[in-house]
Structure formats: structure tokens, C-alpha cells
Nucleic acid binder design. Structure first.
Lengths: 217, 217
DNA sequence: TAGATTGTTAATCGATTAACAATC
DNA sequence: TAGATTGTTAATCGATTAACAATC
């Protein structure tokens, strides 16, 4: 029943983590089955969209019954690749790098943080949850005998491109970038940006709109 | 030339911060004018889309010339509400809360962090860049004589909804949520989620797809 | 079986792209 | 003026929603 995944749009992919999260919550409440209609009510997508989304990957439901929560959860985990294991390094051991290293849920989902790398000597040598903070100059040596899939950039904007170039040379397959810049990368490297300021600016826009609306009335 | 902003889609709004960022970079390089075609080459949107986006808010360009970089930058700043001032509180003074409090760029854009709130007594009393860490139980009292627009949730999932309820009562107008849960809020409160795990799971999906493709060939 | 709900096709809606007249 | 590039309308594309036959 496996479909051709290559045609699945990013719009669908970006909704999958939300299904994953909500199904987890349902499992914790010991809910064993759910219909697209019920899921729609709690998740805010239309029932139609939910069925369309899931059917990009296969027919996980049963007519007249709905979806088995545990089964659907494990299918989505598999589709998202969360049953696999990814070696990860974090560049920048400031608050943000430490926050990510400390977030144990990532470890549970297969993202194994091998080390943090820093240039600030006051941080080098520390341990974050048993994860060592290593001199950034030792990155290449450290990576030599390891297959590192994901590099996380938690530096400031100025250093982000340099760090990215280093990571590409290791090589890593994907870069998760928290610096508020757009990084130039070779085509084949996966790039995912978390631009916190972008998100905050959207709040700012909506606040401004709301204020203007109130002034009008 | 001001258009009816109410009809501008969120797709457009979410692109504005990227224009803002790129125009800033151009200004730093002393570029004074740019055409939609040149901007397209550096930003990756089509020239047509760029012109469409900008024209949602007014005609900022000039035929035969293009756009004045500094003028366009300041227009987008204004549209995003970055010329205004927003009182902000951060709930949760762990690594993530501290990272956000430390990010001085937000301050520059008008997001003024008044305080962080914590329940962990070991953190209460600290200062992050002159910003005090205060007992979460004192939040209501602290907020009494202040107009707080934005509440940032940097707690774990378990406490996020409780904290959100408290923030709504202050009241705040917008909630910037970093906890990996979807929070129930009254309609009129602006909610912006930064679900880090969602972003990481998309990387995971793309890595898995890439690996499968390689196995095929 | 009857009721419920899926999987899937068709219709609709909205967003992006193309085209070009207006004009600097 | 001639060339360049915008602002804007029309065409296309893709994503969402509606509808319903299939079937548990």
C-alpha cells in the first residue's frame, strides 16, 4: 500500500508532526480509536484534509471505524523517520545550544547529540547532560571516524556561514540553523531554518493590526 | 496609497521578515537601489511574487528604477510594527528563556523584556542582562500597573497551559509559545508557536527520503 | 443488516506566475 | 527619447474542501 512519496507536498509534510503530537496525547489518555471528524475537532484541520493527508502514505483507516490511534502514531513516526537514529552535533554552546542539548525528548526520538562545539574557552570542557563541550577547532578531528547526519547552528549571525561551510565539509547531510541569516549551501544539503525573529515579527504585525482596528471603532 | 491590509494573506505576512532581513543586509553593503529581479536572485522568490507582495501595502517602487533600499526597509519595518514598542515577559528562566532574554536584537526592534518568571528558587533573583528573574507567584502583582503585550512561554509542556491561562488573565494580547504543545486560548489572543521538534522532524523526514533514494540507485 | 466512516474523485478556492500597459 | 522596471490584470498552478461510492 506504500505510495510514491516523492509527490507529497511540503505542506502535507509540515502537518505530520502535529498529527504525531496529537496522537501521542490521545495515547496518553488511553484513547484507542479516532475518526477523522473527531481528530478534526481537536486539531483544527478539516476532516477531509486529514484523510487526504494520511492517504498520501497509505490507507491506515478502516471504513465505519476510523483510525487505530496507536497504529497511526507508529505509522507517522515511521514516515517521519523517527524510528531511525541520527548523529548530531551542536555548534555554539551558549544558552540556545545548551537548551537544545538539554531537551531530552530529541534524544528519545533518535537525535543523538554527540557533542557541542564552542570557541569560548570558558565553556569548553563543560558537560551538558553528559554531552561534552569541545573546542570548535577540534571539530574535524572529532568527526573523522563518525558519521554525522545533522549539524545544528546555534552561533550568532556573523559566524553562521563559516560554521555551515565547516559542517558541509565534514560532511553533514542536514543543517538546522538558528542564526537569523539565510545560509548558502550546496543543493544536496538539507537546510531547515528556525528564524525566531521572523516568528516574533509576525506577532508584531498582528498586534499592530489589532491596535489599529480598535482605534477605528 | 495605503491599501486595505485586512485582506493580506498570512503567506505574504510570513515573507515580510525575510524581505526585512535581506534589505538590512543590502543597506549594510551600502546598496541603495534594487530591482525586483535582483532581489529575486538573492532571496529566491520570483520577481513577480516580490512585486505582488509589496503591492499589497502600497507602491514603493518606481518604474524603470526599482526600489530604494533604505525606503523599502523602513516601510517594511513600519508594516511589521517594528517601529512600535511592546512590553514583554518571559515565563521560564531556563536555557531557552535566558537565550531569548539575551538576544539583544529583540530589544532593538522594540520588544522590551521587563522580567523573566520562574518557579525554581535557584534561579529567582538572578539577572540576565539587567533583566530580573522573579518568582512566578509574583507575576500578577508585577503586571498590575504595567501594560504587557506579549507573554513568552519557555516552560515545559506540562506547565504551558497553566502559564498561558495566567498570561491571559493579566491580560496579554499575544502569546509566543515554545513549549511543544498546542495551547487553548480565547479567540482574540494572538498565538504564535515555535515548535522546535516539528522543524526537526521535517529534517528527519527529508533525511529518510534522501537515504531511501540512494538505496534505490 | 444498518450505520458509520474511510479512500478517492471532482469542484472550489487561493496563491503563484506570466504578461504587458503604464511610466519613470 | 529609449530602456528599464514597476503595478496590475489575467492565466496557471496547487492545495483545500466537498461529495459520495466503497466497505467495514
Amino acid at each position: 500500500m506504500k505510495k510514491d512519496l516523492k509527490n507529497v507536498s511540503m505542506a502535507v509534510i509540515r502537518r505530520l508532526p502535529k498529527y504525531h503530537r496529537r496522537l501521542k496525547e490521545l495515547m496518553e489518555k488511553d484513547v484507542t480509536r479516532i475518526s477523522s471528524k473527531e481528530l478534526s475537532a481537536m486539531i483544527g484541520f478539516t476532516a477531509s484534509q486529514i484523510r487526504q493527508d494520511l492517504n498520501c502514505f497509505g490507507g491506515f483507516g478502516q471504513q465505519g471505524y476510523g483510525y487505530d490511534v496507536a497504529e497511526l502514531y507508529s505509522e507517522i513516526s515511521r514516515i517521519l523517520g523517527l524510528t531511525q537514529h541520527y548523529n548530531t552535533v551542536i555548534i555554539g554552546a551558549g544558552n540556545l545550544g545548551q537548551a537544545i542539548a538539554n531537551y531530552s525528548n530529541f534524544e528519545k526520538r533518535g537525535f543523538h547529540v554527540l557533542a557541542l562545539f564552542e570557541k569560548n574557552p570558558r565553556l569548553i570542557g563543560l558537560k551538558i547532560r553528559d554531552i561534552p563541550v569541545i573546542d570548535i577547532d577540534d571539530l574535524e578531528e572529532f568527526a573523522e571516524d563518525k558519521e554525522i547526519e545533522i549539524g545544528v547552528i546555534c552561533t550568532n549571525s556573523e559566524n553562521a556561514q563559516d560554521v555551515a561551510d565547516k559542517l558541509v565539509k565534514l560532511p553533514v547531510k542536514a543543517i538546522w540553523n538558528f542564526a537569523p541569516v539565510d545560509i548558502d549551501l550546496p543543493e544536496h544539503i538539507i537546510q531547515e531554518n528556525v528564524h525566531l525573529s521572523d516568528s516574533l515579527y509576525v506577532i508584531s504585525y498582528l498586534l499592530k493590526m489589532q491596535n489599529e482596528e480598535m482605534e477605528e471603532s
